[in-house]
């Protein structure tokens, strides 16, 4: 199973995402932002980092990279796509996910081990979890406050498109404690917390994040 991990200029957690794919049992394929071709991968991860230094708006420039045209086209056809942190910002800027990520309410970058509640356990990236499951993964961002118009938030909640919600405190002021959302078909998922940093006991606060990567492997098999 080949899972692509895109490197943009300023991507930082690409090595982590690739490691998580490998630990889940997949083959990580390095993808370069300036290429056009997705190299026949079965799913794509947009990793965390500061693509283009967060200049203009976080994710805004990366969303216009040549490779993103292919990602958007294939996502519309059902390709599983996961955006983590900066990757989530890119997916919002690329129009694959609704809403936007803005400067944290307290204006600080913040890194902590964060409790989350899984609300959707049937997306391409969360089928390894159970609905209502509580997990702990690191969160680390300066521009992670999820915002959307109230009507849009109502619609997302009504359609069940909130995938994970912050529990035991909201680290950045996100609307309605939303930590991650999905596309209407459940194939594209974006979240601010970092499941790829919770895949080994040695280095993470838990191994709760591994489920995102095992989920997509089974979803690709069954798709």
């Amino acid at each position: 199973m080949r899972i692509g991990v895109i490197t943009f200029p300023g991507s930082l957690d690409d090595v982590d995402a690739a490691r998580a794919v490998r630990l889940a049992g997949g083959e990580a394929v390095a993808l370069w932002h300036a290429d056009d071709d997705l190299s026949g991968v079965d799913a794509v991860v947009l990793p965390g980092g500061f693509s283009y230094g967060d200049y203009l708006r976080a994710g805004a420039i990366a969303a216009r990279a040549p490779l993103m045209r292919s990602v958007v086209d294939r996502a519309h056809a059902g390709l599983p796509v996961l955006g983590i942190c900066n990757g989530f910002q890119v997916l919002c800027e690329a129009g694959l996910l609704p809403g936007a990520l803005t400067r944290n309410g307290h204006l600080h970058f913040r890194n902590r081990d964060q409790a989350l509640l899984v609300e959707r356990a049937d997306t391409a990236w969360t089928s390894a979890y159970t609905t209502g499951q509580r997990i702990v993964v690191p969160v680390k961002n300066g521009e992670g406050r999820y915002v959307a118009a109230p009507a849009e938030l109502d619609r997302l909640e009504g359609e069940g498109r909130v995938v994970v919600r912050y529990a035991d405190g909201n680290p950045n002021g996100s609307s309605r404690d939303i930590a991650g959302v999905t596309s209407a078909d459940g194939r594209v998922v974006g979240l601010m917390p970092h499941p790829e940093h919770a895949v080994e006991d040695l280095t993470g606060p838990s191994v709760d994040g591994l489920g995102f990567f095992t989920s997509v492997l089974s979803s690709v098999v069954t798709a």
């Binding site: 944290n104 309410g105 307290h106 204006l107 409790a115 702990v136 002021g173 606060p205 838990s206 709760d208």
Partner: peptide, 17 residues
């Protein structure tokens, strides 16, 4: 305190899974 702006988690607590 960042919490004054966004929440109420006391600093230094470590959530457990």
């Amino acid at each position: 305190s960042p919490e004054a702006a966004v929440g109420t988690v006391p600093a230094g607590t470590v959530p457990t899974s």
